[in-house]
Computed example of a mutant assay.
Amino acid sequence: MAEVQEKADSGKGGKKRAKKMSVHLDMTPMVDLAFLLLTFFMLTTTFSKPQTMEINMPVKEESPEDQMPLKASNALTIIVGENDKLFYYFGLGDPADNPEVLESDYSANGIRKVLLSPRVKSNDKMTVLVKAMETSRYKNMVDILDELKITETKKFALVDITDNDKTLVQQTLGQ
């Protein structure tokens, strides 16, 4: 473990000097203990589990007539575009209604502010329709689902994008 080595007296001169002692510590037991503790804590630690978002899917209806129609005044449509772009408008996207399509982003001052606005939160029947373009990224879809979870949006639906939606986005980008 530890040993003490004495140095011999050099024998020079008439004075007698005190013996110098040097200490040599064997570090092997301490290293063994450190690795035992490290191994113990690694084996007993609970690693973080992947977090998943629970999505309740509706029961499949027998016919389209069984579905409840959604009013345009109770709809917010979010379109996930390419290059991390995000568009939204209130309504169902009927070109006759000429909805105002606005561009936004995934920040707290972007789509989150829209989802927390009084127009959306005060309407209990408000349903958010999320439509993704073919060129959008999977990460963007996850981001918008995260925003819906953060803002505690109860009613939302993942819907296929229509040609009307693509036209509205192209008109917005062309301005």
Rank of each mutant, 00 (worst) to 15 (best):
S104V: 13
H24W: 03
V159I: 12
L43S: 13
D9R: 12
E82Q: 10
K60S: 04
A34Y: 15
G11C: 09
A157S: 14
I111M: 15
E103T: 08
R137Q: 13
F90D: 05
I150A: 07
P29T: 05
A157V: 13
N164S: 05
S48Y: 11
S117T: 06
A34C: 06
P118C: 03
T127I: 08
K16E: 06
M57R: 07
L38A: 13
V159C: 09
M42K: 11
R137K: 13
K139L: 11
M21R: 12
R17M: 11
E54C: 02
L148E: 00
V159Y: 03
K125A: 11
R119M: 02
L148N: 04
M30L: 13
V31N: 02
S48K: 09
D163V: 07
Q171N: 15
L102C: 08
L37H: 09
L33A: 14
L36V: 15
G174D: 14
S104G: 13
K154R: 05
V130K: 07
E147K: 15
K139H: 05
F40C: 10
M21F: 15
D84H: 14
T127R: 12
L168Y: 07
T151R: 00
N83D: 12
N83W: 04
V128D: 01
A132W: 02
D143Q: 11
L145D: 05
A34F: 15
R112H: 07
E62V: 03
D165G: 03
